[in-house]
Design a protein around this nucleic acid. Structure first.
Lengths: 288, 288
DNA sequence: TTCCATTGAATGGGTGATCCATTTAATAAC
DNA sequence: GTTATTAAATGGATCACCCATTCAATGGAA
């Protein structure tokens, strides 16, 4: 215990790390060799530089999912920056879904498999900031889902259809038992499965991002008013049948008509359709 | 100098701020009143809590673009956290495009208009991490652009068409003068304008995100091989004419055929199509 | 031997004091 | 009136700590 309370290194003469100003300049200079124009107007900040370097290692394939970065203290020393500023960079990368930080011995910063939910965040922020409107989002969703139906008809595999079938059964059960909010959760999952059945993760990511927000509105509506889409499972079954038959026209028509009726339901009481209500809270079961 | 080496405060009795553990608990408890279930397994970290609170204020409309947050020192005190950890949160929000931090007196953290380019970052990370493939991205782009043509035919306004016309003229000029890389930049802009002409910012954001990556590959290809798409401006003009005539079928066909020829060009020399080359470097004129 | 409790080191999480660089408004000098 | 100068506020960055968690190594009890 006595060793613990004693200073770990009796006032090191501070020669281990170079002057701050110089260090920052070094990082900047090393970024791109021999700038042709005069000089960048915007002084790059250290954490930006760090983020970029790590992303560069990623893009170059030097770092791959599963890899571990050096410990914070060590990496900070390697980069010649303070641990705090390194942490700012790691935090940003963690929020970006690139890293996961794990405590304890054998902990560290691990490169993650990409988290497609990040796009949901973007959509949510854009909506919160007023950059995009609910109308634009709904409209985009309709169009994108139309595309999804085409692709799903072309590419959906047996397992995809089975998963959709299972989802519809869960929806039926939730309906029977009056679990309305669970039914909304089933809807969210339905569109997720549908998006996945296109076989294209980019498309799926896009669909998920617009659907996630949309479902918040539905959730809020159902939670506040108790209303619920009639004959939901039945409609789903018809749609799935069309999808199984690869009947693009029918499937497309069915989905579109359903989306329109949902939209009408939502717009019935515009006052309750508050952007803020829908966005403000993280819903149960949606923990990031 | 003597003051510098001396301990900054001769072991203050540390009563100024509450115990950390308690503080963290306070933050958590205040987040949602009276948790019904047992308790969250995952201990929330301070910076997450802060980010969430600020986003909550955004979603609730209490904070709007243009607003300024309190100064770091003050806000840290208000929240009962250290300035360092507050900065980690602010950094994350800044990287998310929600905030802009400005130095100097009258500086501070200002809420930004949403930055739609954030979605590009997401795509880039997903590609770097191997979560999505180049093939999926290209495929998605083709499909989404098909949708864009439909919407553009329906919604493009005079000004949109004029902007596209002006872009084509720049393309012609660049072609005449042999500025191949500028021409690639024109292409990037062309798709951006086309996307904007749909009148839907969500769609536009999606198109931009898939196009931005695609253009990196084109850029890398042109820069390394010097090859260039033949009769580019001419093809653009034909397409624009179809768009102006609201001829969806023709415009769609023209664009699709062009995309296919570009794809062939890119795939000619698979070795040069390195993911890493295209992603690693920030291109000129693309500074975030 | 086997199993479980203890210990200790490594690591991320967090704090507070301090200094630097930049920006801007107020002030002084011309 | 115009132009330097100064001073204050603010973000940028650092340092030196301390705490909580995790997990492997250790050691004693069954």
């Amino acid at each position: 215990m006595s060793t613990k309370s004693s200073p770990r290194a009796p006032q090191r003469p501070r020669t281990a790390s170079p002057n701050r100003r110089e260090r920052a300049t070094d990082l900047r200079a090393a970024g791109s060799a021999a700038t042709p124009t005069f000089k960048p107007i915007h002084t790059r900040r250290t954490f930006e530089e760090i983020c970029e370097r790590i992303r560069e290692q990623l893009a170059l394939g030097v770092l791959k999912p599963g890899d571990k970065l050096p410990a914070e203290r060590e990496l900070a020393q390697q980069l010649g920056v303070s641990r705090n500023v390194l942490r700012e960079a790691l935090r940003s990368l963690e929020m970006a879904g690139v890293l996961r930080l794990q405590k304890g011995v054998k902990g560290g910063a691990f490169i993650q498999q990409g988290d497609t939910r990040r796009m949901n965040e973007v959509m949510r922020d854009m909506l919160s900031l007023g950059t995009i409107s609910v109308r634009e989002l709904s409209e985009a969703r309709v169009h994108v889902l139309d595309l999804v139906v085409q692709l799903a008809c072309a590419n959906a595999r047996r397992t995809d259809l089975d998963a959709l079938e299972a989802n519809i059964e869960r929806t039926e059960l939730a309906t029977k038992e009056g679990r309305l909010l669970d039914r909304v959760e089933c809807s969210r999952e339905f569109y997720k499965l549908l998006a996945a059945s296109t076989g294209n993760k980019v498309i799926a990511m896009i669909v998920d991002s617009v659907t996630e927000i949309h479902m918040r509105f539905v959730y809020a509506k159902v939670a506040s008013s108790g209303v619920a889409m009639a004959r939901l499972a039945e409609k789903r079954r018809q749609f799935l049948a069309a999808l199984s038959e690869r009947d693009v026209a029918l499937a497309s028509r069915l989905l579109r008509s359903h989306l329109e009726s949902v939209q009408r339901m939502l717009e019935q009481d515009p006052g309750a359709m508050s952007l803020h209500v829908a966005l403000a809270d993280v819903q149960p079961g949606l923990r990031r």
